[in-house]
Amino acid sequence: MSHPGSRAHLVAEHYNQRPEVGVVRRQDSRIIRLRSFNNWLKSVLIHRHARPNDCVLDLGCGKGGDLNKWAKAKIRHLIAADIAAVSLDQMKDRYQALRDRRFSAEFHALDCYGEELAPLIETHFAVDVVSMQFCMHYAFESERKARIMLENVTCRLRHGGHFIGTIPDANMLVKRLRAQPDDVFAFGNEFYWIDFTNAGLQPDKTGFESPYGTNYMFHLEDAVDCPEPLVHWETFERLAGDYGLRLLYKENFHRFYRRALQEPEYEQLLQRMRVVGGHAPDMSSEEWDVAGIYLAFAFVKDQ
Rank of each mutant, 00 (worst) to 15 (best):
G241A: 13
G213P: 01
G244V: 02
P211F: 14
L239Q: 04
F191Y: 14
L230F: 02
L220Y: 08
W233N: 02
L248P: 00
C226T: 11
F185N: 12
W233A: 08
T235K: 12
V184P: 01
F236E: 05
R238H: 12
P227H: 14
A199H: 05
A223G: 06
N198G: 09
C226N: 15
G244A: 08
P229A: 13
D182P: 00
E237I: 10
Y212E: 07
N189K: 04
K205G: 07
R246I: 00
P211Q: 11
H232P: 00
L230W: 05
H219I: 03
W233H: 09
L248Q: 08
D195Y: 06
D183L: 06
G200V: 03
W193R: 14
L220Q: 11
W193E: 11
F187D: 03
P181Y: 12
A199T: 06
D222F: 09
F208Y: 14
C226F: 09
D183R: 12
A199S: 12
F218K: 09
E221Q: 15
D182C: 04
T206H: 13
G241V: 01
E190N: 06
D183T: 12
L247W: 00
P203H: 15
F185W: 10
Y212S: 05
E237N: 09
N189T: 02
N198T: 07
D225Q: 12
E234V: 02
L247F: 01
G244F: 02
A240Y: 01
E190T: 04
F218P: 00
L230T: 04
T197M: 11
F196R: 05
F187N: 04
D195W: 04
N215C: 09
P203N: 10
G241T: 02
F236Q: 07
D204L: 05
V184R: 13
G244K: 07
T197V: 06
E190C: 06
E237L: 06
R238P: 00
D183K: 10
F218E: 11
K205R: 15
P203F: 08
D222S: 15
W233K: 05
L220C: 13
R238Y: 05
E237Y: 06
D182A: 15
Y243M: 04
N215M: 10
T197N: 11
A199M: 03
D225A: 13
M217A: 14
P229Y: 08
P211R: 11
W233M: 08
V231P: 00
W193C: 07
V224H: 14
W233S: 03
H232L: 03
R238E: 08
E237R: 11
Y216C: 10
F185G: 01
V184D: 05
M217N: 15
Y212C: 03
V224M: 10
C226S: 14
L248Y: 00
P181T: 11
K205C: 03
M217F: 12
F196T: 04
D195E: 08
P203M: 10
T197G: 08
S210T: 07
Q202Y: 14
Y216P: 00
G188E: 03
C226E: 11
L230N: 04
E190R: 15
E237H: 13
E228D: 10
S210Y: 04
E228T: 11
F208C: 04
F208N: 12
D204E: 10
C226Y: 11
E221W: 02
F236H: 09
L248V: 05
A199V: 01
L220T: 03
G213I: 04
L239H: 03
G213D: 07
T235G: 03
E209S: 14
L239V: 01
A240I: 00
P211D: 13
H219F: 13
G188R: 08
L247G: 01
V184F: 02
